[in-house]
Amino acid sequence: MKKLVYLALSLTLGVSVANAQTTAPVAASKVVTNGPAISFAETKHDFGNIKQGDVVEYTFNFKNTGNQPLLISDVGVTCGCTATDFSKEPVAPGKSGYVKAKFNSAYKSGMQNKIITVKSNATAGDAQVAIITNVIVPTEASAKPADAKKN
């Protein structure tokens, strides 16, 4: 009989503990950081295949999900083939800004993964976004004019 009472008590306690740990998920848009916070809509953009010499660009949009103004102080790139532009004015809480990346594929070939580091006053520190592409080098046959192929 004692065993039955302990078993029932254990089951009841186990169910209570399990129910206590399930909480309703908090929507990401409702989370507010104390201080400035940068949240990118997308942290990676893949251009797919491009031809050597093509110049491509992409704008990464972000939102300040904190409760204080966000200020980007600098945007760093991994090589001179990538140029950037960004929101220069402070971004108020709940408002959006941008980081634009421009990649010049001249003299590049194969897979490229360019990391852009966004330095700001965000409480979480620096943020990173990336552009990815595969640079296709034209072959000799495709680089010649059409008339030269006929001879």
Rank of each mutant, 00 (worst) to 15 (best):
N104V: 02
V5T: 14
V137T: 15
T22Q: 14
A130S: 11
Q52V: 00
K44F: 05
P69N: 04
P36C: 01
P145E: 13
A28L: 09
G76M: 15
T117E: 15
S105H: 06
V15M: 13
Y58M: 05
F62H: 02
V118P: 12
I131V: 12
S87Q: 06
H45R: 09
T65Q: 15
V91P: 10
A83K: 14
E42G: 08
T59C: 04
A83E: 14
A148D: 15
N104Q: 08
D46S: 06
P93H: 04
Q112W: 05
K119H: 12
T139P: 03
F86L: 00
K119I: 03
L13I: 00
Q68K: 12
V99A: 05
V15Y: 14
A124M: 06
A18T: 06
G110N: 03
E57I: 00
Y6R: 11
N67P: 00
T23Q: 14
Y6W: 13
P25H: 02
S105N: 07
A8R: 14
Q21G: 10
H45C: 08
A122W: 03
D85V: 00
A101M: 07
E140M: 07
D46W: 00
N34K: 13
G48Q: 01
K88I: 00
V32R: 14
V91H: 11
I132A: 07
K108D: 04
P90W: 07
A122F: 03
T59E: 15
I131D: 07
Y98E: 09
S87A: 03
K2T: 14
T139M: 01
N134E: 06
L11Y: 08
I115N: 15
I72C: 01
A8K: 12
A101Y: 08
T22N: 10
T12Q: 04
V118R: 08
D54V: 05
I132G: 02
N104K: 10
N64L: 03
